[in-house]
């Protein structure tokens, strides 16, 4: 699993550096059923690090990137560029069985 962590860390760092990208979102935010009196706990659960997720299923490595774009370049080109960055990292790790999901959650000029 540390290999996957290294992988997602590398992908996240590369994507964050792209001018088209405003920021990464935590891939799946789950709002825990709130416990009154411990709003801290609820907020803490939400403050998960923005990152990229990767998991391996039946030999296929799935990478998911949720992001906000800056809107400086058209969104279709921007997501293709993001996918290319992910591909190049996966190529470097010799991962060929893969499925990349890039999801634009907002565009924030």
């Amino acid at each position: 699993m540390t290999d996957l962590d290294l992988l997602t860390g590398t992908i996240a760092a590369r994507i964050r550096a792209m001018p088209e990208v405003r920021r990464l979102y935590p891939p799946r935010r789950v709002l825990l059923p709130g416990v009154l009196g411990s709003a801290q706990g609820v907020l803490g659960a939400l403050a998960a690090d923005d990152t990229v997720t990767a998991e391996v299923h039946d030999g296929v490595t799935s990478v998911q990137v949720d992001l906000a774009l800056t809107g400086d370049s058209p969104a279709p080109e921007a997501v293709q560029a993001v996918a290319d960055v992910v591909r190049s990292v996966l190529d470097g790790a010799r991962i060929t069985d893969r499925m990349i999901t890039v999801r634009v959650a907002s565009v924030e000029p």
Partner: peptide, 16 residues
Amino acid sequence: LVDGGPDARLVMTEGA
């Protein structure tokens, strides 16, 4: 959002 080829799904949310 745009075709990503066989190894990529490139999507946008309706909210975005």
